[in-house]
């Protein structure tokens, strides 16, 4: 009798403990089924559709292509300063293949713009290597000249009246224009791009022409080269900007081609500080020389020619 009471009590106590423990252990183990994520394979900074920059009214208050008469006179203070320093400092691009780029393996600069700049150094010093390149973005070009961080800028810079207010331009050394790059399998007619996505760099006026001239949907990216990634990934039907930049892209991917006529005119000039007219005249003398002695053709054939076909240097225009 007494033993059964004790046993019963103990049994009850143990059962209570065991039940409680089991209840505690029965915690749920949450597992989740996850849908395959929608991974964004695009380069960062893609804006689709692009924000179109406002159309700028064409400033025709001047004759932009007319520059100063060529002169090999080195007496001007800015040229004296450069000679005393022993090297010419030039603002360039280092990411546009065939135009202004750094050879990824050697670190050497090369390209059409680079070789033009080297000719100016040659006329100043008799040495094409007496030159220092400063890589800069488009937006940095004018401030660098105004602050005299660089003597010259040779970086796909279009001559126009608005810029003439801040910097001085040489005569035109290359006539570029907006074209379109498409996969090699696509049609040769830019009109067929109507309604399709076409890429350009953000903030550029090319975006406007993609919409107006091609009737296509503009997509913007941070840098030109990101457009090329989008073309390769098939996200856009093509990319559109100055033909020289497209030539550099097409040269890196044989599965692409540059098509159509220019839908804009981009006369490139060598820019200098607004005050440095003596230097500009000297640059014009160099441009004169390379037009006459075949150097221009040689440079073109060694860089852009194989992609863009034959071309001749633009005729110089002068203010008087």
């Amino acid at each position: 009798m007494k033993t059964t009471t004790v046993t019963r009590t103990i049994r009850l106590a143990i059962t209570t403990v065991v039940v409680a423990v089991l209840a505690g252990c029965a915690a749920a183990d949450p597992r989740h089924t996850v849908e395959p994520p929608d991974i964004d394979f695009l380069p960062q900074g893609v804006t689709d559709p692009a924000e179109i920059p406002e159309a700028t009214t064409v400033d025709d208050s001047c004759d932009p292509l007319a520059s100063f008469r060529p002169s090999d006179d080195t007496d001007s203070p800015e040229i004296q300063h450069i000679l005393a320093r022993g090297r010419l400092i030039v603002g360039v691009d280092q990411t546009s293949y065939l135009l202004g780029y750094r050879d990824p393996l050697t670190g050497e600069m090369d390209g059409f713009d680079i070789r033009i700049a080297r000719e100016i150094a040659f006329d100043l010093f008799g040495d094409r290597d007496a030159i220092q390149f400063k890589a800069m973005s488009s937006a940095e070009r004018e401030p660098a000249l105004e602050d005299e961080d660089v003597d010259l800028v040779v970086r796909t810079m279009t001559i126009n009246c608005a810029r003439w207010k801040n910097v001085a331009f040489s005569t035109e050394y290359y006539r570029a224009g907006q074209k379109v790059l498409v996969p090699v399998t696509a049609s040769d007619d830019p009109a067929d791009l109507a309604g399709q996505k076409v890429c350009s760099a953000e903030g550029s006026t090319s975006l406007l022409r993609i919409e107006q001239e091609l009737g296509a949907i503009p997509v913007s990216v941070r840098d030109w080269s990101d457009c090329m990634i989008l073309v390769q990934q098939g996200y856009v039907a093509g990319m559109s900007t100055d033909d020289v930049i497209l030539a550099g892209m097409a040269a890196q991917d044989p599965n692409t081609k540059v098509i159509g006529e220019r839908i804009s005119e981009e006369p490139y000039g060598v820019a200098a500080n607004l005050e440095h007219t003596g230097l500009v005249a000297f640059v014009n003398a160099t441009l004169d020389r390379i037009r006459d002695d075949g150097t221009w053709e040689e440079i073109y054939a060694g860089t852009l020619g194989p992609i863009l076909g034959e071309a001749t240097p633009p005729d110089p225009q002068y203010r008087d």
Partner: peptide, 14 residues
Amino acid sequence: GLPLGLAYLRSASA
């Protein structure tokens, strides 16, 4: 030796 590699590098970094 093609600078387009840099674009892919930047894209990867981004």
